[in-house]
């Protein structure tokens, strides 16, 4: 628990630094920044790759990805991807499948399923 809070705090700190752009910045603008969608608010010049990598790697490890593998995987992420994950990896969708649904959720889903709004049960 204490470790978790510490991690959260460090993560928060890291994102603060990233967002305020205290990292070393290049005055040349790369292609990722050039074509980043406006909506993503990507000011990639301000991303600190080192700090963001560390943060994302730590989270992957917490989620059970083996340490070395996590570092290798993070190294494959682009600046934009890394920035996005560093900011809100918790909220990112993780496509798995649709098997375990219980209780009330099940009932609601069943009704919606019958209404044809969703298709949880036909597409596992």
């Amino acid at each position: 628990m204490r470790l978790k809070i510490r991690n959260l705090f460090l993560g928060f700190l890291a994102s603060c630094f990233m967002l305020t752009g205290m990292s070393a910045q290049a005055s040349m603008i790369g292609t990722e920044s050039l074509v980043a969608q406006q909506s993503r608010q990507a000011d990639l010049a301000t991303i600190d790759r080192f700090m963001a990598s560390d943060q994302v790697r730590a989270q992957l490890e917490t989620w059970g990805v083996e340490s070395e593998l996590a570092a290798e995987r993070v190294a494959r992420l682009s600046d934009a991807e890394l920035q996005q994950l560093a900011m809100n990896i918790q909220a990112q969708p993780a496509g798995g499948d649709a098997i375990a649904v219980i209780g009330l959720v099940f009932l609601v889903l069943l009704v919606l399923e019958l209404l044809g709004v969703t298709n949880v049960f036909t597409a596992i």
Binding site: Q84, G95, G96
Partner: peptide, 23 residues
């Protein structure tokens, strides 16, 4: 799977799916 699967999330992140394609 070793490149895209995240056990703790029981799934795969979009960013890592793209990264794996780039390999």
């Amino acid at each position: 799977a070793p490149w895209v699967y995240v056990p703790g999330r029981e799934g795969s992140l979009q960013a890592e799916m793209l990264a794996a394609a780039r390999r």
